[in-house]
Nucleic acid binder design. Structure first.
Lengths: 354, 354
DNA sequence: GAGCCGAACGTAAACGTTTTCACGAACGCT
DNA sequence: AGCGTTCGTGAAAACGTTTACGTTCGGCTC
């Protein structure tokens, strides 16, 4: 059926060994014969059998991406970043997404055993340290994304802390001090870090302001509820900072229905910069996460790890966020230029320029 | 290092053949020995080497997904649908996205050679019939998505034609007859079909109405421009139907800036039902494409094809769309119930119930 | 009790590569 | 001129499975 290395060898009148050497660019072959082999291979449309190669090489030239069941932009951008970088490393990408339970993820992990040379794992609350210890085939290079596992692994995190901190600084710079926070799910790693960043920033920047935190779950409805709750309180906040954009959007809706002007009466900010953020009215100020870059960096870390011998150096890396200033926080009325606040966290002016 | 079938054989005191038979459920082995083998395998944490298996079996138990460089919801939902269904078939998913040029896609196609048992290809303008004939390894089962290739392939398309037709019917039912259309890129297959559906619907439902079509490119800016152009015309349309949501959003922005009330003065509709659609004001009526289902169906077709011997029956399938009625078309003021218009195309009432 | 048949199991070949090793030939050196 | 070294090449082993083919053995029929 399909041509094999023997066919090429016969066609080029050399041994299979020479064909292998010529095609792989391993030395030890004359330019002339290399050329002859290449021609023969092209003539026969020869493409090496990857399984046979993997069998002896112990390398699959593929990496896996394991992620929980998530929709939308985050998923696609992450895959995009990983895929692009993987291809530039000559690697294939095996995707296994949409896992809910631990046993689901464990099965996927097992199934990837031997099919990939490394793996990028996007953590969910269920996928924690002991889960990985139990299910991750040891010796398999892995990079963990947004994980609180700190022991013996390579971890790459979004700098949620710095992001929230910078946004609080921005809001404070605008003159607000009574800033309320809508938090995310208790078991979510990003949510925890964002709340921590908020607490730290408030404590350091406006230490005498009251700390108001209302619970949310990253869903739009919980943001709406939080908005109602905040409106009902005796002293309304000057600004509301939601731990993600969906909640900010829900909160905005509550404000709108109550006839509260944003940002006139209350300023509003979110986190993530989902596409919707720039299309609500007023456009939402938020913290942008460069997700594709997160994927790219994860893939780079993984590639490094795979080149390394067995030595898997544990390390923690972070990827900075950008403050994107639109109208919902009230800073963008005039034409003030953007300024950089941190080395990793840039401030961007984005006047909903659709 | 890792346990091999020989180790299991030794541990279970049988031959490697029996191990293979026991673990694969091929007959010819006593329940007792099968049990013994399973225990030994579990004890050694044995997992069969997939490359070795593929080498002799000529099966990889993996399918590929080849897609152009696209962002956002469409990508993630499609992958999601494919992945879920692939896993339920016991197949792995090899993703290769973000291809721009033909040579890029050709390389990806070649690289997948031998790594997958079948492939799902999402067409882009560059990937046409002769490209596939030239680059698709023959004998490799393939399912084409949103493709105008009709010869010798299995094709699954969104029913753009019926979708646009149904939306026009809906607008006409609302009393509009001067309906303008903002078209998509000329070389885009979906855009072509949507325009064809619009022309057909207008010709049949309101034959005496003038046919107004202004050119767009699926981008938001082009929708904005089209909006301006329509406002400037001597007889303004009663309704505007954009070939996709992004253009409808741009158009809406133009109307807003001009102080034109939507849907009061002009009704507006889009196509795709991107997440943003429900968050603009007024929420956008549109045609929903069930993308995850598209992916699932594609995977099912592919699985069928792979089970088949060599006989690759060419066929064309379509997936219906849903009309989702929000406020931008003016139908949703009252509380009218939803009605079904076609067997494949349902009409949904969706009053922006965030 | 001889013959036979089918089931359970083992032996070994095969799948298509890479890589180690051996073998010449060519070459530069004393 | 002889020798050692390098270099290009080929033969063959190895990777871990599946499976075709024997072989054994127990139980059945006459």
């Amino acid at each position: 059926m399909t041509a094999t290395i023997k066919d090429v060898a016969r066609e080029a009148r050399v041994s299979v060994a020479s064909v292998s050497r010529a095609l792989n660019g391993t030395g030890g072959v004359t330019p002339a014969t290399a050329q002859r082999v290449r021609e023969a291979a092209a003539r026969l449309r020869y493409v090496p059998h990857s399984a046979a190669r993997s069998l002896i090489t112990r390398r699959t030239h593929a990496v896996g991406a394991l992620m929980p069941d998530l929709h939308g932009e985050f998923f696609s951008e992450l895959i995009r970043g990983i895929d692009l970088e993987a291809r530039s490393h000559g690697l294939h990408l095996l995707v296994s997404s949409s896992h809910n339970g631990t046993e689901d993820a464990a099965a996927a992990l097992r199934a990837m055993q031997g099919r990939v040379d490394g793996i990028v794992i996007l953590s969910s609350p269920r996928v924690d340290a002991e889960f990985l210890k139990a299910n991750l085939p040891d010796g398999l290079p892995a990079v963990l994304l947004n994980s609180d596992v700190r022991a013996g692994a390579v971890v790459l995190n979004i700098d949620n802390f710095a992001g929230t901190y910078a946004m609080v600084r921005h809001l404070v710079g605008l003159g607000h001090s009574r800033i309320a926070f809508i938090s995310g799910p208790k078991d979510n790693f990003d949510a925890q870090q964002r709340e921590a960043g908020f607490r730290a920033a408030m404590g350091e920047l406006v230490p005498k302001a009251p700390l108001r935190i209302v619970a949310g779950d990253f869903g739009e409805a919980s943001g709406y509820q939080a908005g109602l709750e905040l409106l009902a309180s005796k002293t309304r906040p000057e600004a509301v900072f939601a731990a993600n954009d969906m909640m900010a959007v829900g909160c905005l809706q509550a404000f709108k229905e109550a006839g509260v002007d944003v940002p006139g009466e209350i300023a509003l900010a979110g986190f993530d910069d989902i596409p919707i953020a720039r299309y609500v009215t007023p456009p939402l100020s938020t913290v942008r996460v460069r997700i594709a870059e997160l994927g790219k960096n994860a893939m780079d870390l993984l590639a490094d790890l795979m080149d390394r011998p067995g030595l898997s150096a544990a390390s923690v890396h972070t990827l900075g966020c950008d403050i994107v200033v639109r109208e919902s926080c009230g800073a963008n009325r005039g034409g003030a230029a953007a300024s950089t606040s941190t080395s990793t966290t840039k401030k961007i002016r984005d006047p909903s320029n659709r």
